[in-house]
Design a binder for these strands. Structure first.
Length: 470
RNA sequence: GCUCCCAUCGUCUAGUGGCCUAGGACACCACCCUCUCAAGGUGGCGGCACGGGUUCGAAUCCCGUUGGGAGUGCCA
């Protein structure tokens, strides 16, 4: 394994874990697994005011949730970019000593001013030959050589950059701290990274980094720039505008397997006509060369569809276990002491085919654990608008009272009799009963719901409904 | 503005010169099933951005146009 490829995932801890980052991590992980390589996690915390330590744990937790676990033999890290600051500065000074970098005392404002007056973009190389020594406030800039830089990218193919279009970029800030481009390259060299698989937004950086790799005496790793994830406006997913936090999806009851599966189908597809496939098949089939070149819309609706399918694939027992977090005290919308696991168990199978995310579960069963379920007024009005509604409720209450066996089939038979005597359809008459008992116009099958709820509560609610109608 | 990337149904994709009158999935519509809602089943709608080439033959190769996107920091 020591000779296998070394992939890396290098997020910066600046907020909740982004689904785009999750996909990139997953791409790296799938490749690592298939090729018997190593997945290196490096936290890029380089001296940035937005970095917060708690986000680092968030990244680790989110990766673990996706199946990329710290304890796995092919997982390495986390490393912290800040720990290598000395090496970054050393590398920079080596470039300075070799004349491949030079100091410049222009402030950002001055650089901009010169650009404006010269009519050209960016830094113009003002200090290239001024022979400035290191000093406070002076930045170290890389002396971009003449010529052309050709990036060989596994996804894009060959991408050419004319070096004349690349300005002498900053390696060390005025305060002496290393910048991303440099730190990133030095870290990758230290960690012997062989494959850099990252989002397309880094492609414009790549010629700079490749020059750095070469200037530092190594040959560049294999690059692969995967397309970004976009919103409905076709803009890159952003933390501010879009719902991108993996943590949030987890809380709502998206299953990790469906999130992983869905994310992998953005920009890529398994062979054959099925998109829902086990992770192992993804590992077996995923190849960077097959990744699409265009941005992919992160479609929550399709994610939900995947999730619904994953939920339905579970055994009832698995489903019941998976529901625990959303039924937990403090989370569920009923008093903790009212919850009855047996009742939930009895309803679980009927709920399972009716939800797309686990967070949908409580509203399907809350009527079982609430003394008086809140009534959906719109549903109520609609359900009782017909003149027969009151009578049906009264008769059903009577039938419930006299019913010998409190089972779904008996209850159904009872309502059927009432329905037929009035020349109605069960589809009609079930409505007032449903709203009266559950508070909602839709939900799990009615008679099973009544059976599980029990005779007393059912009767009480039917009587309340009748009273309400006056 | 400049640099770079991209372009198959509304969306995600299959497709690597003939198997394509372009396949699947999500969404949507209809029907079936049905105590509501789902689930399930069946069917339908719907696409190769445009214009030139190359070729016996192009969604697939080349060029251009148009349209999108990303980058352009002493952020990462």
């Amino acid at each position: 394994m020591s000779n296998g490829p070394r992939y890396r995932f290098a997020p910066s801890p600046t907020g909740f874990f982004h689904v785009g980052g999750a996909r990139t991590a997953l791409y790296n992980w799938a490749l690592t697994l298939r090729e018997g390589g190593v997945f290196v996690l490096r936290i890029e915390d380089t001296d940035e005011s937005r970095n917060q330590p708690q986000w680092t744990q968030g990244i680790i937790d989110a990766l673990a949730w996706l199946g990329i676990e710290k304890g796995h033999p092919q997982f390495e890290g986390p490393y912290f970019q800040s720990d290598n600051a000395t090496a970054h500065v050393e590398a920079a000074m080596r470039l300075y000593a070799e004349g491949r970098a030079y100091f410049c005392d222009l402030t950002p404002d001055q650089v901009q001013e010169r650009a404006k007056t010269s009519g050209k973009q960016g830094y113009d190389g003002f200090s290239r030959d001024r022979g400035l020594e290191p000093g406070p406030g002076r930045v170290l800039r890389f002396r971009v050589p003449e010529g052309e830089t050709i990036v060989h990218d596994l996804v894009r193919g060959e991408v050419r950059f004319d070096n004349a279009t690349i300005e002498d970029f900053v390696l060390l800030r005025g305060n002496g701290s290393p910048m991303f481009l440099l730190a990133n390259v030095v870290d990758d060299q230290i960690m012997r990274i062989t494959h850099v698989v990252r989002a397309e937004e880094h492609l414009p950086n790549t010629p700079k980094q490749q020059m750095l790799w070469e200037a530092l005496g190594s040959s560049a790793p294999t690059w692969a720039h995967v397309p970004v994830l976009v919103n409905e406006q076709r803009k890159k997913l952003s933390k501010r505008r879009d719902k991108v936090a993996v943590e949030q999806y987890r809380e709502e009851g998206i299953l990790p397997a469906s999130m992983v599966n869905y994310l992998m189908t953005l920009g890529w597809a398994p062979h054959g006509d099925t998109e829902i496939v086990p992770w192992q098949r993804i590992v077996d089939e995923f190849r960077l060369e097959d990744v699409n070149h265009s941005p992919a819309f992160f479609d929550i609706q399709k994610l939900l569809a995947f999730n619904g399918e994953y939920i339905r694939k579970m055994t009832v027992q698995e489903f019941i276990s998976a529901c625990e977090p959303v039924l937990a005290p403090g989370v569920a919308p009923w008093p903790a002491d009212k919850f009855d696991a047996e009742k939930f168990r009895a309803m679980a199978e009927l709920v399972q085919t009716r939800v797309q995310v686990l967070a949908d579960v409580p509203s399907m069963v809350d009527f079982l654990f609430l003394d008086t379920p809140q009534v959906d007024e719109a549903a109520w009005t609609k359900a009782v608008k017909d003149s027969w509604a009151r009578d049906v409720l009264v008769e059903m209450a009577a039938a419930c009272e006299s019913c010998n066996e409190w089972t779904a089939v008996h209850l159904k038979t009872a309502l059927e009799a009432i329905t037929e005597s009035r020349g109605l359809k069960l589809g009609k008459t079930q409505a007032p009963i449903r709203v009266a008992v559950t508070g909602r116009g839709v939900g799990p099958p009615l008679f099973e719901s009544l059976e599980v709820l029990g005779r007393d509560a059912t009767l009480r609610r039917l009587h309340n409904a009748v009273n309400r109608l006056g």
